[in-house]
């Protein structure tokens, strides 16, 4: 049967939103999920016969799901905080990179390159070991929890990436915009904040969303330096259950949760990139 004309299709609220969120029936997501789910199921089936009196693997996973999600929340908290701090600082660093004053431009370029090319885990170690565990403010001691230090550790590379995104977006704005602003006697800072930046925001969004997905995935590195998060929860669960046959399904299950969170962001990024593609 041929498709009816688009105008004849009934209106369904939420169509547009579903498109943006990337939840459209998508062969890739189906194939990806099938791959991971298949791994768990095959493994679970292989052990169903030998399990005997012990509860089935799928049942165990289900029982521990709230606990695992409780850990996963920390990934979201840490990555959101790192993004907030990193974006704010990175924005300023990016604008400093196009400064006309060499004494501002050169150090901000250097800082960006340094943080962008250093391994995330090394920067995380820096923050974990070299930041104080408490602050003295007006005689009172304020403890800095580990997860906050980790969030700051992730904010450093985020800052560098945002700085590059901002610089790239500003450079992509046609010179005519700068010239017309100058002709209308805008000052340089007025031009940047009132004319250039508003046009940049749209161009920066896809890259920024992509960065958010990367930071969410990087936040599991906090596990390496002893901060509790999703992967830590998985390890605690495995330690509590003490069953070797659980190792594979549990880690696959954790991967699946990350996939479910990050894949829609990736799809939305591609969607926005296509929609807002700048015509050359």
């Amino acid at each position: 049967m041929s498709r009816p004309f688009a105008v004849l299709l009934p209106f369904r609220p939420g169509d547009g939103l579903a498109g943006i969120a990337g939840y459209r029936a998508d062969r890739r997501v189906a194939a990806g999920l099938a791959l991971a789910a298949g791994l768990i199921l095959v493994h679970a089936a292989a052990h169903a016969a030998t399990a005997g009196a012990k509860p089935a693997i799928l049942e165990t996973l289900w029982r521990w799901t709230p606990f695992l999600l409780g850990g996963f929340v920390w990934n979201i908290v840490i990555s959101a905080l790192a993004m907030a701090v990193g974006t704010a600082l990175g924005f300023l660093l990016g604008i400093a990179q196009i400064s006309q004053v060499r004494a501002v431009r050169a150090p901000s370029w250097f800082a960006t390159q340094l943080l962008r090319n250093a391994p995330w885990l090394v920067l995380l170690f820096y923050c974990m070991y070299l930041l104080p565990f408490q602050l003295h403010v007006f005689g009172t001691r304020i403890g800095i929890p580990d997860w906050l230090k980790a969030a700051f550790g992730f904010a450093l590379p985020v800052m560098a990436y945002v700085s590059e995104i901002v610089r790239g977006a500003i450079r992509s704005i046609p010179a005519g915009q700068w010239e017309s602003a100058e002709a209308l006697s805008f000052t340089r800072s007025q031009t940047i904040w009132m004319i250039i930046i508003p046009q940049c925001l749209k161009r920066m969004l896809p890259a920024w969303m992509n960065l958010y997905a990367i930071v969410t995935m990087a936040s599991v590195l906090a596990n390496v330096v002893g901060v509790s998060e999703g992967l830590t929860a998985a390890r605690e669960m495995l330690a509590a259950e003490q069953r070797v046959e659980l190792l594979l399904p549990v880690y696959a299950y954790v991967l699946l949760w990350f996939f479910a969170y990050c894949y829609p962001i990736a799809r939305a990024t591609v969607f926005l990139e296509r929609r807002w593609a700048v015509a050359h």
Partner: peptide
């Protein structure tokens, strides 16, 4: 589909979790 699934899955999951999955999970 298998290749597309592989690409989508490995791009959108944390590399450290993948490493644990392979070393502890598949390794077992």
């Amino acid at each position: 589909w298998l290749v597309n699934g592989y690409v989508a899955f490995f791009r959108n999951t944390p590399p450290l979790a993948q490493l644990y999955f392979f070393y502890f999970g598949v390794g077992s």
